[in-house]
Simulated scan of single mutants.
Amino acid sequence: MAGLALEQLRKTYAGGVEAVRGVSLDVPDGAFCVLVGPSGCGKSTVLRMIAGLETVTSGAITIGSRTVNEVEPADRDIAMVFQNYALYPHMRVYDNLAYGLRNRGTPRPEIETRVREAARMLGLETMLDRYPRQLSGGQRQRVAMGRAIVRKPQVFLFDEPLSNLDAKLRVQMRVEIRRLQRSLGVTTVYVTHDQVEAMTMADRLVVMNGGRIEQVGTPIEIYRRPATRYVATFMGSPPMNILPAEVVPGGVRIEDATIPVATPGLAPGAAVEAGIRPEDLRLAPEGLAFGVAFVEELGATRLLHGRLGGAELVVQVPAGPEPAEGAAIRLAVAPGALHLFDPGTGQRLGMPG
């Protein structure tokens, strides 16, 4: 097993299209690193360059102490799990698991040991004689994972492996993948567009946008202290509210209310953007004036939708009959829960932790 390092990684396609723009990242040995972002942000291209399936325009990829830019995919000591499983339909589960080892000339007794061990870990012992067509989607994904596990690689690469599964099975499989990774201790890079997957699985989270890294940190660091407006609105469901605001003595003014917050280096009258997560807003006797236009029932909680300061606002409150649609209410911001961003650059403005 080994760590992984990317240094100023770039990928430019014909016509000058830049898919990856100077990505640098260190993934410690044994870490579970998740690359998250929307379609087209460059996350899968980064993964494919690590795997050797895409050439590197410039920059360096290092696995352990070896730079692998010019190393063939089969010789990089990585194993990749794809979205579409990529199983051989004419082979039994056992043979799908053993295929890569046989191609490498692994002795038969070792193949038997590794296949049986992977099958035990993944709950596939009773399915080794079945064909892929006889398996459910979750079972096929387990076989794809098993094929990676038997290789005992230095690095696991997962490219949106759960996208084809239904919601319940996705929850089950992400727990299984995380449990397996912890037990094996293999450095893992996992790509997804699903921020819930990213938050629940990662111990190191990388948010990408437009071919660049926006922020790297633990899931809670990124959720609670987003470095940019983009990160703030991408990570979280529902996303962070962004409202126009003005710096005033002692805080910022949003519409007719002043919210206390430290504003170091910001002069009174400066325009800023105030970020507030829906769960950080509270019903209060005074504060932000808000009209409830629509209520979304979620069971344990409710989402109140409306507009404030010309922007969309969502408030998360406990379940209950009030407030109802059409109600006029006041909202307070939880202490320390206001985030300030530069309206021009989108960068987080200096605030104490």
Rank of each mutant, 00 (worst) to 15 (best):
Q8T: 12
Q8F: 10
L9N: 04
T12A: 14
S24I: 03
L25F: 09
V34R: 00
A60C: 05
A79T: 12
Y85D: 12
Y88F: 08
H90I: 04
H90T: 09
M91L: 14
L97W: 00
R108D: 15
T113Q: 13
M127R: 11
Y131S: 11
P132Y: 01
R142E: 05
V150F: 06
E160S: 03
P161Y: 04
S163Q: 00
A167S: 10
S183R: 04
T188Q: 10
Y190A: 06
V191Q: 04
E197H: 00
M201F: 14
R204Y: 10
L205V: 03
N209Y: 02
G210P: 00
E214G: 03
P219E: 11
P226K: 15
M235D: 00
P238F: 10
P239R: 03
I242P: 11
G251A: 06
T258F: 10
I259R: 02
P260F: 03
G265I: 13
G275S: 04
L281A: 08
L281M: 04
E286M: 13
A293S: 15
H305L: 11
G309Y: 07
V317E: 14
A324H: 14
L331R: 15
A337H: 06
L340M: 07
L340N: 02
F341Y: 06
G344L: 15
P352Y: 11
